[in-house]
Design a protein around this nucleic acid. Sequence first.
DNA 1: GCAAAAGTGTTGTGTCTACACCCATGT
DNA 2: ACATGGGTGTAGACACAACACTTTTGC
Lengths: 220, 220
Amino acid sequence: MVLQVRAGELQVLLWQRAQEPFADSWALPGGYLEPGETLEQSIRRHLAEKVDVRELAHLEQLETRSEPERTPDEWQLATAYLGLVPSDADPRVPDDTEWHPVDALPPLAFDHESIALAGRERLRAKLSYTNIGFALAPGEFTISELRDLYGAALGHDVSATNLQRVLLRRRVLESTGRLRAPGPTGGRPGALFRFRTHALEVTDQFAVLRPPGPARAFVA
Amino acid sequence: MVLQVRAGELQVLLWQRAQEPFADSWALPGGYLEPGETLEQSIRRHLAEKVDVRELAHLEQLETRSEPERTPDEWQLATAYLGLVPSDADPRVPDDTEWHPVDALPPLAFDHESIALAGRERLRAKLSYTNIGFALAPGEFTISELRDLYGAALGHDVSATNLQRVLLRRRVLESTGRLRAPGPTGGRPGALFRFRTHALEVTDQFAVLRPPGPARAFVA
DNA sequence: GCAAAAGTGTTGTGTCTACACCCATGT
DNA sequence: ACATGGGTGTAGACACAACACTTTTGC
């Protein structure tokens, strides 16, 4: 499944099935594994027909579903993946494919609704303790823009003040030194930031039960 | 993979392979999926030959590995599971099966070493933000006994003082009201506790970026 | 000057670690 | 009494949320 914040909402890319079972209903894009192919290669290959692979800023495995009743005819195992597309990408998608807000999903084929919700939960959890925001955000952004992305993904308002402090304290963000020009209505120009790394890092390692000893050295 | 704290160490149940490939080397117990069977049913069935299923206090999926080079001959996908056995269980294991400390693994077949280490990391992380300790501990225990279990699983010393306070504050533990008789060397008898629930619960929901609003009501 | 948007200062709260101290038992 | 192990009190560090206030722009 591919998620992106579009028009201020967290949306998922859905594909309208042409064939039975579940003809005409919506489904997560994907397909069969070819011999000798890894699961990740396979999902990238199938997604390439829908989204340019270069726009996938992050891809991780969610879960493998094996319940026999998840498919009506043949028994099928499915390994779900979560892919994220930065909000400044606008992939040209085929006619049978559309973005849908995760908060207002149409009826989905198979167990895809539960997979889509699981993917959203995975993203929400990781926004809290990793730098995964890099995969939702453009290369450079103001804190306000980032707040809107986090707000859309988390489903609740986020304070720009505290978001900035948390992400700077954790050294997830760094300043570019540049400013964004203010809009036609005025307002102070926002400073532009970027994510320090574009690979997943855990930034809040252990909530509790940390190893004993003096505070970890600050590495400058 | 099955983990248990035995003799003060986190250990994993390994099975000595009789057949090629990797004959005589150690491997995680498991086996093929039968048609119409879920992955969880399958791992439970295969583990039943090694460990009494009633002793598996927790079982969760880890990850599906699909690299073609992970097996020498045939291409095999494998879905890894993490199972936990309470420290007071002592399953009678077959002759070809032995417990090994995860910190001193023998050379393992396939990619099983990396799976074993991934399982240990999953356990360590969840000890921090869930009640997963219920699956390592006996039905009743003193805080000191629980501290030793957490210490073995986490790989570092744990303070009984703080462990007690964290787990009581989160309402993960509850007192049984009873005491454990002191040992032959004396000492104050320890109070006996138990885990309030024996199903996995997240007890430290979000590290940061909590939804706004007044503090959540305390539910007595 | 005024509205709009961004950013900083500051206070309060809650959770955790560390450590000193007190309690209950056996010999 | 003293050793051994269990439990409590308390202080300090830290991270976070909330909110007031200041800064910088367009009109």
